[in-house]
Design a protein around this nucleic acid. Structure first.
Lengths: 157, 157
DNA sequence: ATTATATAGTTTCAAATGGAACAAAAATTA
DNA sequence: TAATTTTTGTTCCATTTGAAACTATATAAT
C-alpha cells in the first residue's frame, strides 16, 4: 500500500533550522546593532579578529563562511567606524593584515560576554553530557550536509 | 581567579546554526531553483498551500515566518508562473484565497519526496529515540529563544 | 626574460529585501 | 448611521546582497 507523502513545514528540519537560526541571530544582533552600529557580518569579523589578530581578508572569508565581496564591505565599513585597522603586507603586495583597533577591542570585550550569556540561555539547563550529545549530532549533520553538497556538485559536472 | 572569556566562532551555537541552516537551505533549493525556477520563499508558499489549500496571504505569512511584503511578492511571482491561483473571498473583500494550480500541484508532488529524502539523509542513521531527543531539544531551544525575544522586546519598551 | 595563469581584493550593476507610507475594506465605537 | 480604528494587502524607496568583470600582484611555464 502506498504511503501519502506529506510535508508539514513546521516539522521539516530545514525549515525549523532556518527559523531557529534567524531568531537566534536577530536576538544576538540586538546586542550590538543599536549600541555599536555594526551588522551581523561586521560582528563576525570583529569576533574572528578578536581571536586571531592579523588575518587577511581571504583568511577571514574562509573562517567565517562569507564571500570575499562581503568581507570587502565589512572591512571598509569597520575601518570607517575605526574599529579595524589595515596594514599592507610587505611579503605580498596584494594582501593586507587586519587588526582590531583599541575601540574595536573594546567592542569585542563588551559583546563577547553578552553573546556567551545568550548562548548559555539558549542551551538552557542541559547537562554537560547532553550538550556533548547535541554537539555531536550537530557535527554529524554538518558533515553529512557538506558531503551531500559535494555529491551534488560532482553530479552537476 | 578570573576566567578569560573567549569566543571561538566555529563552536558558537548561533554561528553553527546559521551555517548549517544556510547549507541545508541551499542544498534543498538546488532541487527546485533551476528545475522549476522558484525561490526559497516561493517554495515555502507552495509547500504550505500543498498541505492547506485556500489560505490567505496573512495566514501564509503567519505559518511561514515571512513578512507580508515577502508574501505579496511570492504570490505575484507564483501567479505569473501559473503555479498559484487567487480567488477573492466574497465574505471579506480585503482577502483572497490562494490555491495551487494543476501545474503548482505537480511541482509540489515532485519536490516533496526529494525534500523528504534530503531531510532523511541529513538525519543520517539516527535511531528513532535519538531523533526524538533531537526534536525535543530543538523544540526547547525554539521556545527559549522566543521567550528571550519577548523579554528583550518587553525590556525595550 | 616573456608570456600565461592564478590569487587577492575591489568595483559595478542588477536583483532581493525590509520598512514606511498607502489604499481599501472590515470592525468598532459613538 | 457616521466617525474612528483595525486589518489586509500593495507600492515605493532605500539598503543589502550576489555575481561578474576588473585591477594589481604573484607564481608558473616556456
Amino acid at each position: 500500500m502506498e504511503q501519502k507523502l506529506s510535508l508539514q513545514l513546521q516539522d521539516f528540519l530545514p525549515y525549523r533550522l532556518s527559523v531557529l537560526s534567524n531568531n537566534v541571530s536577530s536576538l544576538l544582533a540586538s546586542l550590538y546593532t543599536e549600541k555599536f552600529g555594526i551588522s551581523i557580518p561586521e560582528w563576525r569579523m570583529v569576533a574572528v579578529l578578536g581571536e586571531e589578530p592579523g588575518l587577511t581578508s581571504t583568511q577571514i572569508a574562509s573562517r567565517v563562511a562569507m564571500d570575499k565581496v562581503a568581507v570587502t564591505r565589512a572591512v571598509q565599513s569597520l575601518i570607517e567606524k575605526r574599529l579595524v585597522r589595515r596594514s599592507s603586507s610587505q611579503a605580498d603586495g596584494r594582501v593586507s593584515h587586519l587588526n582590531l583597533t583599541k575601540a574595536g577591542r573594546q567592542v569585542y570585550d563588551e559583546v563577547v560576554p553578552m553573546a556567551l550569556a545568550i548562548e548559555h540561555k539558549v542551551w538552557g539547563t542541559l547537562a554537560p553530557a547532553e550538550k556533548d550529545y547535541w554537539d555531536d549530532m550537530l557535527s554529524k549533520m554538518e558533515s553529512r550536509v557538506s558531503t551531500l553538497r559535494e555529491e551534488l556538485l560532482e553530479f552537476n559536472k
